[in-house]
Amino acid sequence: MKSLLFYLIIIYIGIFNTLYINKPLEQSMIEGKEIYDDFCVRCHLDNGMGEKGKNPPLANSDYLENIDKTIQSIKFGLSGPIWVNGEIYDSVMEYQGLDDEEIADVVNYILNSWGNKHEQIITEEKVSSIDESI
């Protein structure tokens, strides 16, 4: 009986942890917008359109189809030429020093704003699984 109770507690803690770690998309997006307005807005602008020839757009951007690359570029910074919607951008996005949870939040915000839609929520675990060499 005692051990049954013990297992129940373990299971309960397990469920609680999963719920706690995976915050709902809405919450993640709210926190993601805060990060966006602080770290991203100067170049990619409020409407996610970027600046033609300078900073690539995030709204309806085909670059975002590769989620791993998207996360990687925020996590480690990005430099050198990239193709976005048929145009070449050769600029630098500096390493921003965000932690994995913050990156998950801002990616969720980007993937679900300005007409973008992404069904699966990006979790902190997903971000932490991405390393520099992909």
């Binding site: 602080d38 770290f39 390493y95 921003q96 020093g97 965000l98």
Partner: peptide, 8 residues
């Protein structure tokens, strides 16, 4: 050094 956003 705390590298964060414009900081470093």
């Amino acid at each position: 050094v705390y590298v964060r956003g414009q900081g470093g």
